[in-house]
Design a protein around this nucleic acid. Sequence first.
RNA 1: GGCGCCGUAGCCAAGUGGUAAGGCAGAGGUCUGCAAAACCUCUAUUCGUCGGUUCGAUUCCGACCGGCGCCUCCA
Length: 485
Amino acid sequence: MTLALYNTLTRRVEPFTPLAAPPARVTLYTCGPTVWNYAHIGNFRTFLFEDLLRRYLAYSGYDVFHIMNLTDVDDRTIKAAAAAGKRLDEHTAPFVQAFFEDRDYLRIAPAHVYPRATQSVPAMVRLVERLLERGIAYKGDDGSIYFAIAKFPTYGRLSRLETRELKVGARVASDEYAKDDPRDFALWKKAEPIDEQVGAAWDAPFGRGRPGWHLECSAMSLEQIGKCCHAETLDIHAGGVDLIFPHHEDEIAQSEAATSKPFARFWVHGEFLNVRGTKMSKRFGNFLTARDLRDQGVDAAAVRLLFWQTHYRKALDFTDDALAAAGAGVKRLGEFYERLGRDGGRGTGDGDGGGAGGGGGRLADLAAKFEADFRAALDDDLNAPRACAALFEFVHNGNAALDGGAGGTAAARAVLDRAMSVLDILPSAKAADPALERWIGERLAARDKARKSKDFKEADRVRAELAAKGVEIEDTPSGTKWRLV
RNA sequence: GGCGCCGUAGCCAAGUGGUAAGGCAGAGGUCUGCAAAACCUCUAUUCGUCGGUUCGAUUCCGACCGGCGCCUCCA
């Protein structure tokens, strides 16, 4: 079995066959955040889907080179900086920082490089020059540089909007008359006063200005894969569905017109996160940021599981109920994982279990089945919901096997660890400070004493006291366990 | 108007031309001093509606109803 992915270019699920077998290098470019503000969890749904893709490629043995850009100059960043009376980099710096914090909170594996638009201007200027030399770009009447769609016959191949017409009543851009063809898009925008004001203008042979939105991704991805792999074609380019048009369509046009090579072999797009049926968006004000969740004490593992339980190409409605349900699932998974470690002191793979459910190695067998199902599911266009179903089936059957005294826990735990390298949904450990821990120890001892003398009233009172502080307890044959909730 | 997606149990959500995964919630039971956790059992004759193709459709086709997305700078 090998990985197959839905390729937006062909609208089909196709086997993912890189130029060489694992451990071959795979180049993955994902469109990152525009750092004009905090990213919301809708944005992060896409980044999490890309995290799943990247981790599963690694799990499958590939040497992934993951590039994620940071858009730190565009209309919104400039407007926001001007509104705040700041320079562009002054305005974006905290949001870049916040993005990395949110990324870490959500356990998203860091990309290998985070090229920034403002730091890649030379590469962008070179790309524009190449297009000018080839006669595909031209200077408009307003002094901006445009890409001539007419010179790129396959324009529209990705989005299939080649025959599009402007929607009735759609607004007409102010630069409409500066372009040869209304469909042409800006590569380089002539510097305006507001750009100068915030420091978002650069000199170029074709005029002082700033990059158009699409240009950065073409320039930076080509620059990065040139450096790392001497290539001009990406293995995979990913993003949200809303980027298909015009962003990715335009990236293809710019890149391929310049290199005459396919820009990316696979285009994969993640669906939206919705709120009550409508896409989460800053514009609609129906958004929630990652830090909102973090501040509410939401375990990132629950967010991840919630997202994994819906296929990445299907819209997902975000609700508190769904998040809570995922939280319960995460907790159960954590219990099982802990139990494997605890009961696994003796299990080595061929077990000692003599109970009803378990012969030797029963858990190892279950783990092997789980791993096969897990892979088959993710190989099938990253069917994470199915992978999660396999996981919980394993939890269920594994618990039953443990109840029956089965062995093989070390093997089972190893399999689970491998799966977690992809899903990463074990509950976050909540650390207690030493003082609290000491107090818990005292209380537990008191309760134990009460229980031994059959003073259950007192024992229950202590349990309630602990619960009031968020300490949940569980009596087990090997003593009372506690955890913070 | 153009292109496209979605509609499966109380909630969330996989799925296949051959008879409905998984999660959460709920009910009963085992275990426990009681709990908790775990386990066992149960919870969709049915997959928006109506037609069609087929031996057979939730799965293919058509129409309709409902929800949503993109159509120039939104992940």
